[in-house]
Computed example of a mutant assay.
Amino acid sequence: MAEECNHDCSSCGTTCGADTRPKDLHEAPHELSDIRHVIAVVSGKGGVGKSLVTGLLSVAMSRKGKHVGIMDADITGPSIPKMFGVSGEVRGSEKGAYPVTTAGGIDIVSMNLLLDDDTDPVVWRGPIISGVVKQFWHDFIWEDVDYMFVDMPPGTGDVPLTVMQSIKLDGIIIVTSPQELVSMIVEKAVKMAEAMKVPILGLVENMSYFECPDCGKRHAIYGQSHIEEIAKEYNLDVLGRIPIQPALAAECDAGQIETTEADYLDEATAKLLALDE
């Protein structure tokens, strides 16, 4: 309390006229957008299959009759368009730009849909990349989207921070792999989410095992899973385990993820559907 103050500052959230209440930094989407739920898919490190999980969740929710959108926030390493077999430029108008729609009706915005050649590198510094992610949010018209999935770049850098600060998230899903060191990586993602006050919906383990097509035995190619230990330590739900599945990888490479019969994320789908209840 300042010397000139003649009242209890804690009762009004100010200190002699200076507003000390927490600021809401969330930005509104485009005025014509209608987005009900936003889920970010994150990983503490690269190469664990974050984009695969984003794709599988999007396909699963679309099959449940939900209109799904994907914001590919991995600006320097976008893979969502290839996975879904979409290409070409986004459609624009005086009111704003529109996502590209897949054969199955999923709306996608990705840096690779804005480049003349999808193999051109994006050699930008962090603040510019973060600005592009914000444009994906408020310059594009996301029409009647029930669930938007944000495919985040790995780590806890500029873009994840921008998304968590700028977009009101219903929660995040953390993607892991079986290696023991992943516990430390998951902890970083958990602590970032807690610091940003973003709910953690649960964990998904990718490359969890390989099932021999001849004998049916499961092999822990990348070591024994630690996901149950991690989940217990941080009081999180395990929402699915995705095996090493060559057929699924081939579908993604061919741009045909929407034709997959993989159903490894039923628990995650159920938890997302519960957001509507």
Score class of each variant (00 low, 15 high):
residue 2 A to W: 04
residue 9 C to Y: 09
residue 13 G to K: 04
residue 14 T to Y: 15
residue 17 G to A: 02
residue 18 A to F: 11
residue 18 A to Y: 06
residue 19 D to K: 04
residue 19 D to N: 14
residue 21 R to H: 04
residue 25 L to I: 07
residue 27 E to C: 12
residue 27 E to S: 11
residue 29 P to E: 07
residue 30 H to L: 05
residue 30 H to R: 06
residue 31 E to V: 13
residue 32 L to Q: 12
residue 32 L to I: 01
residue 35 I to T: 10
residue 35 I to V: 15
residue 36 R to I: 00
residue 36 R to C: 01
residue 39 I to L: 05
residue 41 V to A: 12
residue 41 V to S: 07
residue 42 V to F: 02
residue 44 G to Q: 03
residue 46 G to H: 01
residue 47 G to P: 01
residue 48 V to Y: 01
residue 49 G to E: 08
residue 50 K to L: 08
residue 54 T to C: 14
residue 55 G to P: 05
residue 57 L to Q: 11
residue 61 M to Y: 05
residue 67 H to I: 05
residue 71 M to T: 06
residue 79 S to E: 06
residue 82 K to C: 00
residue 82 K to N: 13
residue 87 S to V: 06
residue 87 S to T: 13
residue 87 S to K: 14
residue 90 V to I: 09
residue 92 G to K: 03
residue 93 S to T: 15
residue 96 G to H: 02
residue 96 G to A: 05
residue 106 I to T: 06
residue 116 D to R: 14
residue 117 D to Y: 12
residue 120 D to M: 09
residue 125 R to I: 02
residue 125 R to N: 07
residue 127 P to T: 03
residue 129 I to Y: 08
residue 129 I to N: 10
residue 131 G to T: 01
residue 132 V to R: 04
residue 132 V to H: 02
residue 138 H to L: 05
residue 142 W to E: 05
residue 143 E to M: 03
residue 144 D to K: 11
residue 144 D to Y: 01
residue 146 D to I: 05
residue 146 D to R: 14
residue 146 D to M: 10
residue 148 M to D: 12
residue 148 M to P: 12
residue 150 V to K: 06
residue 151 D to I: 02
residue 152 M to D: 13
residue 153 P to A: 04
residue 159 V to M: 07
residue 160 P to Y: 02
residue 162 T to E: 11
residue 167 I to D: 14
residue 170 D to L: 00
residue 173 I to K: 01
residue 174 I to H: 04
residue 174 I to D: 08
residue 175 V to M: 01
residue 177 S to T: 10
residue 179 Q to W: 12
residue 180 E to T: 09
residue 183 S to M: 08
residue 184 M to S: 11
residue 186 V to A: 13
residue 187 E to A: 09
residue 188 K to L: 05
residue 189 A to S: 15
residue 190 V to I: 10
residue 194 E to F: 00
residue 198 V to I: 09
residue 202 G to K: 03
residue 203 L to I: 04
residue 203 L to R: 08
residue 203 L to V: 06
residue 203 L to D: 02
residue 206 N to V: 01
residue 206 N to R: 01
residue 207 M to L: 13
residue 209 Y to N: 11
residue 210 F to E: 12
residue 210 F to K: 12
residue 210 F to M: 11
residue 210 F to S: 09
residue 212 C to F: 09
residue 213 P to D: 02
residue 213 P to Y: 04
residue 216 G to N: 13
residue 217 K to I: 09
residue 217 K to C: 12
residue 219 H to G: 00
residue 219 H to L: 00
residue 222 Y to W: 11
residue 222 Y to P: 01
residue 224 Q to H: 12
residue 224 Q to N: 14
residue 229 E to N: 13
residue 232 K to F: 00
residue 235 N to M: 06
residue 238 V to M: 06
residue 239 L to F: 05
residue 244 I to Q: 11
residue 244 I to K: 03
residue 244 I to V: 15
residue 251 E to R: 04
residue 252 C to D: 10
residue 252 C to T: 13
residue 254 A to M: 09
residue 259 T to P: 01
residue 260 T to N: 08
residue 261 E to D: 13
residue 264 Y to F: 14
residue 264 Y to D: 05
residue 265 L to N: 11
residue 267 E to Q: 10
residue 268 A to K: 08
residue 269 T to Y: 02
residue 271 K to V: 14
residue 274 A to E: 14
residue 274 A to I: 02
residue 275 L to D: 07
residue 276 D to A: 15
